Deep mutational scan, measured.
Amino acid sequence: KTVHVDGVEYRFNNPEEADKFVKRLVKEKNGNVEVRGDTYHVE
């Protein structure tokens, strides 16, 4: 899984860790998540 945040790319081998990371980011930023294939885009 890959997570894109503000143009920075984070790669996770463990999908659960990627999910936790995304949830935390969305809370912090009050942002939205767009999923494209295996990539999460957080804005």
Rank of each mutant, 00 (worst) to 15 (best):
K1D: 02
K1V: 15
K1A: 13
K1H: 13
K1E: 04
K1G: 02
K1M: 13
K1P: 07
K1Q: 07
K1S: 10
T2M: 06
T2W: 06
T2C: 15
T2K: 05
T2S: 08
T2I: 14
T2E: 01
V3L: 03
V3M: 01
V3D: 00
V3E: 00
V3Y: 02
V3T: 00
H4C: 15
H4F: 15
H4Y: 15
H4A: 05
H4V: 15
H4T: 13
H4N: 11
H4S: 10
H4R: 11
H4M: 14
H4D: 02
H4W: 15
H4P: 01
V5K: 00
V5C: 08
V5L: 05
V5N: 01
V5G: 00
V5A: 01
V5T: 02
V5S: 00
V5Y: 09
V5Q: 00
V5M: 02
V5I: 09
D6A: 03
D6V: 00
D6H: 05
D6E: 03
D6C: 15
D6M: 03
D6I: 00
D6K: 01
D6N: 14
G7D: 03
G7L: 01
G7C: 04
G7E: 02
G7Q: 00
G7W: 00
G7M: 00
G7Y: 01
G7K: 00
G7A: 00
G7H: 01
V8Q: 03
V8R: 05
V8T: 06
V8P: 04
V8G: 00
V8W: 04
V8S: 01
V8F: 07
V8Y: 04
V8E: 04
E9A: 03
E9H: 01
E9K: 02
E9C: 15
E9Q: 04
E9Y: 08
E9S: 03
E9F: 04
E9L: 06
E9P: 02
E9G: 00
Y10K: 05
Y10T: 09
Y10F: 06
Y10P: 05
Y10W: 02
Y10G: 06
Y10L: 06
Y10R: 04
R11K: 11
R11F: 14
R11V: 11
R11D: 06
R11Q: 10
R11P: 10
F12G: 04
F12P: 06
F12D: 03
F12R: 00
F12T: 03
F12Y: 00
F12L: 00
F12C: 14
N13Y: 02
N13M: 08
N13L: 08
N13D: 14
N13K: 06
N13Q: 11
N13A: 13
N13S: 13
N13V: 07
N14P: 00
N14L: 05
N14I: 03
N14H: 02
N14A: 02
N14F: 03
N14E: 06
N14T: 15
P15A: 14
P15S: 13
P15D: 10
P15C: 13
P15H: 10
P15M: 09
P15V: 09
P15K: 13
P15L: 09
P15I: 11
E16T: 04
E16D: 10
E16H: 02
E16K: 03
E16I: 04
E16A: 07
E16L: 02
E16W: 06
E16Q: 05
E16V: 03
E16S: 04
E16F: 04
E16C: 14
E17M: 01
E17T: 02
E17D: 10
E17W: 01
E17L: 01
E17Q: 02
E17P: 00
E17C: 14
E17G: 00
A18S: 01
A18Y: 12
A18W: 07
A18R: 05
A18N: 01
A18Q: 03
A18M: 08
A18K: 06
A18I: 02
A18T: 01
A18L: 07
A18E: 06
D19M: 04
D19V: 04
D19N: 03
D19F: 05
D19H: 05
D19G: 01
D19P: 04
D19L: 13
D19Q: 04
K20N: 14
K20E: 15
K20D: 15
K20C: 15
K20H: 11
K20G: 09
K20Y: 09
K20L: 11
K20Q: 14
K20M: 13
K20W: 08
K20P: 01
F21Y: 02
F21G: 08
F21R: 01
F21K: 01
F21T: 03
F21E: 04
F21A: 04
F21L: 06
F21Q: 02
F21W: 02
F21H: 04
F21P: 03
V22R: 09
V22W: 04
V22T: 07
V22F: 09
V22Q: 03
V22N: 04
V22G: 06
V22Y: 07
V22E: 10
V22K: 07
K23T: 10
K23E: 15
K23M: 06
K23W: 00
K23F: 00
K23C: 15
K23G: 10
R24K: 14
R24V: 08
R24M: 13
R24W: 12
R24P: 02
R24G: 14
R24F: 08
R24I: 13
R24Y: 11
L25H: 04
L25F: 03
L25Q: 03
L25D: 02
L25C: 12
L25P: 00
L25E: 07
L25Y: 04
L25A: 03
L25R: 00
V26M: 14
V26P: 03
V26W: 06
V26H: 08
V26Y: 10
V26S: 07
V26G: 03
V26K: 05
V26D: 08
V26F: 08
K27S: 11
K27L: 12
K27T: 09
K27P: 04
K27Q: 13
K27W: 05
K27Y: 12
K27N: 08
K27V: 08
K27E: 11
E28C: 14
E28Q: 08
E28F: 05
E28Y: 06
E28L: 09
E28T: 06
E28H: 06
E28S: 09
E28R: 03
K29Y: 15
K29A: 10
K29M: 15
K29P: 05
K29N: 13
K29D: 11
K29S: 13
K29R: 13
K29T: 12
K29H: 15
N30E: 08
N30R: 10
N30K: 08
N30W: 08
N30A: 09
N30M: 11
N30Q: 08
N30S: 11
G31V: 15
G31Y: 14
G31N: 08
G31F: 14
G31E: 10
G31K: 06
G31C: 15
G31R: 06
N32T: 13
N32E: 08
N32Y: 14
N32V: 10
N32F: 13
N32W: 14
V33P: 08
V33M: 08
V33C: 14
V33A: 06
V33Y: 10
V33T: 06
V33N: 05
E34M: 13
E34T: 11
E34N: 09
E34D: 09
E34L: 12
E34S: 12
E34R: 08
E34K: 09
V35C: 15
V35S: 06
V35G: 04
V35F: 06
V35P: 07
V35E: 07
V35M: 08
V35K: 10
V35A: 08
V35W: 11
V35H: 04
R36T: 08
R36S: 11
R36V: 12
R36F: 13
R36W: 10
R36Y: 13
R36G: 09
R36D: 12
R36L: 11
R36K: 10
R36H: 13
R36E: 11
R36M: 11
R36A: 08
G37D: 12
G37E: 13
G37V: 12
G37M: 09
G37C: 13
G37R: 04
G37K: 07
G37L: 08
G37P: 07
D38S: 02
D38A: 02
D38K: 04
D38P: 09
D38E: 06
D38F: 01
D38W: 00
D38H: 02
T39P: 07
T39R: 08
T39S: 13
T39G: 12
T39V: 11
T39W: 11
T39N: 10
T39Q: 11
T39I: 11
Y40K: 11
Y40F: 12
Y40E: 09
Y40L: 11
Y40P: 09
Y40G: 08
Y40I: 14
Y40C: 05
Y40H: 09
Y40S: 11
H41E: 13
H41D: 12
H41Y: 15
H41G: 07
H41V: 12
H41W: 15
H41P: 09
H41S: 07
V42R: 02
V42G: 10
V42P: 10
V42L: 05
V42M: 07
V42Q: 10
V42F: 12
V42S: 07
V42N: 12
V42A: 08
E43F: 14
E43H: 09
E43W: 14
E43I: 13
E43Y: 14
E43V: 14
E43S: 12
E43Q: 11
E43C: 15
